[in-house]
Simulated assay, not measured.
Amino acid sequence: MIAEMDARMRSAEGFIAALDQSGGSTPGALAAYGIPQTAYHDDDGMFALMHDMRARVITAPAFSRTRILAAILFERTMEETVLGQPVPTYLWRTRGIVPVLKVDKGLLAESDGVRLMKPITGLEDLLARAAELGVFGTKMRSVVNLASPSGISAIVKQQFELARTIVGHGLMPIIEPEVLVASPQKAGAEAALVAELTRNLDELTDGVDVMLKVTIPETPDLYAGLAAHPRVARVVALSGGYERTDACTRLARNHGMIASFSRALLDDLRVSMDDATFDATLAEAIDEIYRASTVKE
């Protein structure tokens, strides 16, 4: 099973659906979906509504392996069920979609132009549970705001240290050092990030592979060399706040890079839609993102 997932993630056509909104981003995601904060009164109610939304997405006919390679899940989603099956089991066995788990616990305050990840308490137990449930890999996010070589070095070092732990549990780490699209030094930060990622990748031993999730760069094909690196299974792009059409236009200029979109995938969905309208709206977004991931300029 893992070998089949690995082959699919490395070479199949399609893109990754990021369905991993967590505590801080969930109210905004629900509001965009048409559910105000007055509809729930505590975290349990909020996450139950979020799970209903995610379940509606992953069970929709348009959400299929013909376009979707993988889905990134929040920890609580991984532990939930869909149609009587654990979510990772449903995704892989029923839909042929690879399950991936978000493992970071949020970010520290900005320092030296970057935001490091908070300590991930209970990581070993979480990884063991993910492997038990049939999860293929993990994702963890840091943020770059300024072109600070020392700051960028610090977040890449943190990411790669955790990646080695993740690989030790038989899981594929997706390293996500997000350069903010609003950064006043975006192009410079991206150039520094490429250099630091390359240095750390070159230090990995055989058998330790990672995926990279990065912001769509200002310079097209900036990450093409990393996509060809022997220790990189795949390079994927986050939408980073770009509207879907803009994100897809930018993505199509970058060879060897596929999407891992969240808001750009889900923004047009509304709780009030009937099932046919919901699926048609989702299908339109999926088709546009798929084209940008597979048909390059």
Rank of each mutant, 00 (worst) to 15 (best):
V181E: 08
A182M: 10
S183Y: 08
P184Y: 13
P184C: 11
P184F: 10
Q185Y: 02
Q185R: 03
K186Q: 15
A187I: 11
A187C: 06
A187M: 06
G188Q: 15
G188N: 13
E190P: 00
E190M: 06
A191E: 13
A191D: 12
A192G: 03
A192K: 11
A192N: 09
A192Y: 09
L193A: 09
L193R: 12
L193Q: 07
V194E: 07
V194S: 02
A195K: 12
A195S: 13
E196V: 01
E196H: 01
L197T: 04
L197V: 01
T198Y: 00
R199N: 10
N200A: 15
L201K: 04
L201W: 00
D202V: 03
D202H: 01
D202Q: 07
D202W: 00
E203P: 00
E203H: 06
L204I: 06
L204C: 09
T205L: 07
T205C: 00
T205W: 01
T205Q: 13
D206I: 07
D206Y: 05
D206V: 06
G207R: 05
G207K: 10
V208I: 14
V208N: 06
D209N: 10
V210H: 03
V210S: 05
V210G: 05
M211W: 03
L212Q: 09
K213P: 02
T215K: 03
T215Q: 11
T215S: 15
I216G: 06
I216K: 04
I216V: 15
I216L: 14
I216N: 09
P217N: 10
T219S: 07
T219G: 00
T219K: 12
P220W: 07
P220Y: 09
D221H: 12
D221E: 11
D221W: 04
L222T: 05
L222G: 00
L222A: 13
L222Y: 06
Y223I: 02
Y223Q: 01
Y223S: 03
A224M: 06
A224L: 14
L226D: 00
A227P: 02
A227S: 15
A227D: 04
A228S: 13
H229Y: 06
H229Q: 09
P230Y: 10
R231A: 15
R231Q: 12
V232G: 02
V232R: 07
V232S: 05
A233M: 10
A233V: 14
R234Y: 02
V235P: 01
V235N: 02
V235Q: 00
V235R: 01
V236W: 03
L238N: 08
S239M: 05
G240W: 12
G240M: 13
G240H: 13
G240P: 12
